[in-house]
Amino acid sequence: MDYTFHWRPVFRKLPDLLEAGLVTMEVAVLAMLVGVVLGLALAIIRMSGLKSITWFAVGWIELARNTPALLQLFFFGFGLGAFGIHLSPFLIVLFGLSFNNAGYLAETFRGGFNAVPPTQVKAARSLGMTPTQAYTRIVIPQVMRVVYHPMTNQMVWSVLMSSLAMLVGYRELAGETQFLASKTYRIFEFFLVTAVIYYVMVKLILAGSRLLSWRLFRY
């Protein structure tokens, strides 16, 4: 083994890496928020049974779940160029991740809503609750319990997937690492430190989610 590790260039750039880690969190959280809104819409459309728009939701969900996330990213990056739409790297990543998140979350939400028997709504209504009350007090809390864990997982996936951004030229954590690694030729060292940062970020998300779940589901 005639390779000498050089860690100093990495540690000198550590602030840059950590800052890029924040960019990763930003884009992952944004994509998650957009994904939740779109996923909820898709789930409602799919459950509505309206033939005219169900195909759209089903198509989105199946495409998002059955093609690689990287391909989806490339599609927003290069594919849309054919129509003269040129997105910034940030938007490519945001749209790509949101598209993917929405597809997965739609199925999560559908499962969550299916887990609450419709008779419960009838029971709540017959007890004198308004439809809004029945939903906010009976249905939503139970759905939350079912979808909370899968949503946490999706958030983790969102962070992990955001690393694909390096391939479309966005400088989040992975992209920044590649940029710095190619400048200094310390590829292994840089990516090892980045791997540690990703690991810590994922653990923080999981810990945060656990804390929040204690708070949310006390009874």
Binding site: V156, L160, M161, L164, I187, F191, A195, Y198, V202, K203
Partner: peptide, 9 residues
């Protein structure tokens, strides 16, 4: 917990 792409590289 580490992105696959980072593992590969």
């Amino acid at each position: 917990s580490v992105p696959l792409i980072i593992q590969l590289i």
